[in-house]
C-alpha cells in the first residue's frame, strides 16, 4: 500500500497543511481505521466527525505519531511523515491535545506551558553552565509569552498551582494553551468540548476562531454539531474507519449516506444529548 501515489499534486499541497492517504490500522484483527483518506485545508478549521467507534481518535493518534499505521501515507506540508516518531512530527509544527486531558500534573500551570517551546537552549547541559545569560534571557521571554497566553485563557491566577489540582474545564484550557505555546502551524484537538459546560464551550469556540484568525490550521474531533456548524469551515465524516464524505456541513446534510451513518439521529431528534 505504501507505494500508492499520493492523490495530492504539488499545487494542491500548498493548499493543504495536512493530508493522509489510505491509512489503515487494526488492533488484534479488528480494523479501527480501514482506509482514511482526507486533506486538511490550510488556515481553516476542519472538523473530524463520525459515530462512536468510527476511528477518529485512532486517526488523530496516527497523525500525531503516537501510533503507527499498518499502511498508508501521511504528509505534513510537503513532508512525508509516515510512521515518524511523535516528537519529530511535533517539531514540524503539529501539536495535539488529548480527549481526556493529560496535564503534566507535578508541574505548575506556568511550567506546563514553558515545557512546550521547541529547541530551548536551557535544555542542553552545555548551555546551562557555559551560556547562562542566553539561557536566562530565553527563559524570561518564554515565561512572559506564557503568562500572556495564560491571561488570554483565564488561567493567569492559577499560574503557580500544580496542574493536577485544576478542575476538568481548566485542564482542557491548559491543554490548548500548552499547544499554543509551542507555536504550532497545525493544531489537532481531540474533542476539546467534551465534558465541558456550555459557557466554556462558547469560550473555547472563541479561542479556536482566534487561532484561525492568526493563521493556524486546526483539525478538531467534535461531536457537537452545533459547534461544528458554527465554527468549522470544512467537515470530514469518518464511518467504520473510512472517509465517508468531506465538505461543508450544510452540504453533508443532503448526503443520504452521511445522514444514515451519523447525522440522521441528530437531524430527526434535534441537538444531540
Amino acid at each position: 500500500m505504501t507505494d500508492t501515489p499520493s492523490p495530492t499534486t504539488s499545487d494542491e499541497r500548498d493548499e493543504f497543511a495536512l493530508s493522509c492517504h489510505d491509512l489503515k490500522k487494526s488492533f488484534q484483527g479488528v480494523m479501527a481505521v480501514s482506509g482514511a483518506t482526507f486533506e486538511v485545508p490550510r488556515g481553516m478549521i476542519t472538523a473530524l466527525i463520525g459515530p462512536n467507534g468510527a476511528g477518529k481518535t485512532t486517526v488523530v493518534n496516527i497523525l500525531s505519531g503516537m501510533m503507527r499505521s499498518d499502511s498508508g501515507r501521511m504528509m505534513v506540508d510537503s513532508t512525508d511523515v509516515t510512521n515518524w516518531e511523535s516528537y519529530k512530527i511535533a517539531r514540524l509544527g503539529l501539536m495535539r491535545t488529548f480527549q481526556l486531558s493529560r496535564e503534566l500534573g507535578g508541574l505548575t500551570v506556568l511550567e506546563n506551558l514553558l515545557v512546550a517551546p521547541q529547541h530551548q537552549s536551557g535544555e542542553s547541559l552545555f548551555n546551562i553552565f557555559f551560556r547562562p545569560g542566553r539561557t536566562k534571557r530565553e527563559e524570561l521571554a518564554n515565561a512572559q509569552r506564557a503568562l500572556e497566553i495564560l491571561n488570554t485563557y483565564g488561567l493567569y491566577e492559577l499560574r503557580d498551582s500544580r496542574a493536577r489540582e485544576l478542575s476538568g474545564g481548566q485542564k482542557k484550557l491548559l491543554e490548548i494553551a500548552r499547544g499554543i505555546m509551542a507555536a504550532p502551524k497545525i493544531l489537532l484537538l481531540d474533542e476539546p468540548m467534551a465534558g465541558v459546560n456550555p459557557a466554556l464551550i462558547d469560550r473555547i469556540g472563541g479561542y479556536i476562531l482566534d487561532l484561525k484568525a492568526q493563521g493556524m490550521t486546526i483539525l478538531m474531533v467534535e461531536h457537537n454539531l452545533n459547534v461544528v456548524e458554527k465554527i468549522c469551515d470544512h467537515v470530514i465524516v469518518l464511518a467504520e474507519g473510512r472517509t465517508l464524505a468531506t465538505g461543508r456541513l450544510s452540504d453533508l446534510r443532503a448526503n443520504a449516506e452521511v445522514v444514515q451513518a451519523y447525522l440522521g439521529e441528530v437531524i430527526s431528534a434535534g441537538p444531540a444529548h
Binding site: S64, G65, M66, E85, S86, Y87, A90, R91, M95, R96, F98, R102, L104, G105, G106, L107, E111, L114, V115, A116, Q118, Q120, S121, G122, E123, S124, L125, I128, T135, E139, R178, A182
Partner: peptide, 24 residues
Amino acid sequence: APLGRTLRAIRDDVEVSSALGKGV
C-alpha cells in the same frame, strides 16, 4: 534549568512530552 523541567515533564507523562516535541 529548562532541562530539569523537561525531565520532570517526561516523568509526569512520557507520551505527552513526546507529543510536545521532546526526544524522550
